[in-house]
Design a protein around this nucleic acid. Structure first.
Lengths: 122, 122
DNA sequence: TGAATATATAAGCAAATAACTATATGGTGA
DNA sequence: TCACCATATAGTTATTTGCTTATATATTCA
């Protein structure tokens, strides 16, 4: 890059990767990503899995979305989140998730929950 | 595990991996790890690379050591740090470091520094 | 032994983080 | 339009983090 305009910030590759890893360095976000690697979910489904408030999940999703790690798709009143394969770190993310055990417990919790029915996925 | 004695804490695999990724989620520590993946270094060598105080580097190394990500070997008054291949996340660490550009700038800074001579590595 | 060097630890502080409650926004359907 | 639902945002707070300076510890060498 010849020069940097305006407030554009230069980021080294290391800063870039460590910012990405920092996002996965929170167990709630890591779990969300593991779940989304298996199927897209709306917020109310994810909510079934964790012992935290709805705003807390929304805020984690916001960070993942700001980093372009997940994308959202509105379907009626529900917003479905899924992984964003276009992310430059997507391959590494797959590597990491691949080393995790399957999030079977969480997926079963979601599938057994009322949330699935409410969201029209039952 | 049948039961947990004393204050032993149960940690899920996800908590375990995210704690590991959290450590690499700091650019200073990520850089230290990238450097150590190429050669062992003493603290005074690492110090040449960063714009932080010596205690700051020591504290980062402490965290990496507590997580068994690096090991130390005293050689006279110097303590050399290197990666700990016995760590269960070592393969993933290699994956991550392998996706980084070579830390050539840092290695050259170390090699060009007085530190190398002082530590008897020149 | 005592000075010099390398590293670690302690203590304190400002910034970042992740949670919460309260409230706003946006879509659905009577 | 209005009530209801899903989700987002705002504002607050307690905790964690990463840095600093000051000091302690360990090793070498004269």
């Amino acid at each position: 890059m010849e020069h940097m305009d305006h407030a554009e910030q230069k980021h080294t590759a290391i800063e870039n990767v460590s910012a990405f890893l920092k996002l996965l360095g929170d167990p709630t976000r890591m779990t969300i990503v593991a779940i989304l690697s298996r199927r897209e979910c709306c917020v109310c489904e994810l909510l079934e899995v964790f012992d935290v408030s709805q705003p807390s999940i929304s805020q984690h999703l916001r960070k993942l979305k700001d980093a372009n790690l997940v994308k959202e798709a509105r379907k009626g009143q529900w917003i479905y989140y899924s992984l964003q394969p276009a992310n430059p770190h997507y391959a590494l993310l797959q590597e990491i998730v691949g080393r995790l055990p399957e999030p079977s417990v969480q997926l079963r919790t979601i599938e057994a929950s009322q949330a699935a029915n409410r969201c029209g996925n039952g």
